[in-house]
Design a protein around this nucleic acid. Structure first.
Lengths: 339, 339
DNA sequence: CTGAAAGCGCTAACAC
DNA sequence: GTGTTAGCGCTTTCAG
């Protein structure tokens, strides 16, 4: 149905090779023929089949992306940046949204394999054994963005989660807080679970602030969980004066919980988030957060992956650690010491 | 490098045809051979090339999706639903995020064409002439989700935007409000711009509520715009007692503006949003909103498109109108009449 | 039930 | 500069 290269060749009175040549912008074609071919293409509304081209070139210009949750503000923003950069480099995205669904992830990884994607971006770190082994057998570059799964040969783009969590906690301590609660992630996650937790703990310890285990909770990075855990925290006697949540979503959940208990942020309780998602500016009070360079992270993820794909010189062989940054907004305040 | 069907055939001691047959689950293969082939596949870690298969079958199982803004809560949610449904039906998504970028849209549409996607989902209605003509020449099904561009032969999945806006406005009127501001969309958009505006106006007119043009603003559905427009609205004398914003994002922007002016929602001003995105539950006070069935809309969009692709009997030939629903939360209250 | 062979639409040697 | 031709890895007649 759709016109093929042969049709164009016939119409222009040249060989398919010549058509292919003008399509691929090669030099050795007389201007006159080039024009003829272009006319034929326009008249026929011809678009070369990327499928056929991929088959012979053994390159699909496709990048497979595995996102844990499209509806999270962090992931949708980083995906947006990934998409932008990919498009700029003439790569296309095959997107898979896995919601803690191992089977779906496995299925998609196989789809990626069958689709012969040129590279894969993964944004979570709870890799099942099956996934790991599949990944290791894959012949295409894989890159992790915002996470670093343990025991993997692949490159990660991350911030120093330990230090970022340390700095966030330290900020609360500097504000004079001594009862600081922690709403953590999933301890099966090294990057966003363990590292951030250890950062929190070490900041307390190094500053001789007492660790109170009732103040320490673990969740799943989602708003609802932040809300629920905050409820537990508010039940503690005495109440903490500050909370560090390891995702903005959980921080907002915590803020809402505080609000629903007729307490005020930051007057009664200071809250600091983590990620630097859009949420920070969207809530009131605006959320102070330890920010990841989300946009840059997405961009660099794709650029690095493309380097790997195209095997350019100087493709990095090690993780890229980006800088984190504390952005102070309105959700934390100085703790007035009790008399 | 990667094993091909020929390798499997050799290893199993059968012909490629037989391998192809077991791959495609055909019946007429002796169980014994079937087993042999399966073993060979496992041993080799063989995954059939979807590329090659697409070429001969003239079907890619690919759906191209054009989203206006991945970071918006509405679109990321509907995309999530689209992705889920597509995956369930063994289709894969090629995602394009166009941020009011006509060139990018055109480029992607051409990519879709070259990729030979089986169908296309579009979620905005500002179609340039060039886009329109390209769309019309395309030989694959196209479907619009949540919008209905004027003068298009393609099917749309929408709610009755006029009636939904009418009902939203009416709700405010029933609460006793008489000075009701409107934060609208882009009037170049029929569905979400004009229809919602006319719904608002007619609700006022039919209830003999005076239309005050200073209260009527138009924007772009984004939070920041809601904030800015609300600022203008707050400058009016007298101030309105209620505001209808045609997206939750703008409604939240408006709420934040009210907050930043030391006023209270809903005590000083009632605000109702539109869409039913996650934001509604995320802000305080929680946002009352005229909701679209986002999840269902995404699901039905894909299911309908697949019907069209597979040309099943009973594929709809007309728009599908889904139901809207007012969900009352905490951002609107009864207007106490002035003495 | 099974296999040989033609071709899907394109690119890339290789000749001319 | 330009054309011929052999595949890319698969499915699908068509024989057997």
């Amino acid at each position: 149905m759709a016109p093929k290269i042969k049709d164009v060749a016939k119409k222009a009175g040249v060989s398919v090779t010549t058509v292919s040549r003008v399509l691929n912008g090669e030099k050795y074609v007389k201007d006159e023929l080039k024009l003829k071919v272009k006319h034929a293409i326009d008249e026929l509304g011809y678009a070369p089949s990327h499928i056929a081209r991929s088959l012979v070139r053994k390159k699909t210009d496709l990048i497979g992306v595995i996102v844990p949750d499209l509806t999270s503000s962090f992931y949708s923003t980083i995906l947006s940046s990934i998409e932008e950069t990919a498009s700029l480099n003439d790569y296309n995205l095959l997107v898979c949204n896995i919601i803690e669904d191992i089977d779906k992830e496995l299925k998609y990884l196989n789809v990626f394999k069958q689709m012969r994607v040129d590279g894969i971006i993964i944004m979570h770190e709870k890799l099942s054994d099956e996934i790991r082994s599949l990944l290791n057998k894959l012949e295409v570059p894989v890159i992790f963005s915002s996470v670093k799964p343990i025991d993997q040969k692949f490159i990660s783009l991350i911030i120093d989660d330990y230090q970022a969590a340390y700095d966030a906690t330290n900020y609360l301590i500097e504000l004079g807080h001594e009862r600081i609660a922690f709403i953590g992630g999933d301890m099966r996650d090294i990057t966003s679970g363990q590292n951030r937790y250890v950062g929190y703990r070490n900041a307390l310890t190094n500053n001789h602030v007492k660790i109170i285990y009732d103040y320490i909770k673990f969740g799943d990075y989602k708003m609802q969980k932040g809300y629920d855990l905050m409820k537990e925290i508010l039940a503690c006697e005495p109440r903490p004066t500050a909370v560090f949540a390891v995702s903005d979503d959980m921080a907002v959940g915590a803020m809402n919980c505080v609000h629903d208990h007729q307490l005020k942020v930051p007057d009664d309780i200071s809250i600091i988030g983590f990620d630097g998602s859009q949420l920070t500016e969207l809530v009131r009070p605006r959320l102070t957060s330890m920010e990841q360079p989300i946009h840059e992270m997405g961009k660099l993820t794709v650029e690095t992956l493309i380097q790997l794909i195209e095997d350019q010189e100087g493709s990095p062989e090690e993780d890229l650690i980006l800088g984190h940054k504390l952005v102070v907004r309105d959700s934390c305040k100085v703790n007035k010491k009790e008399a």
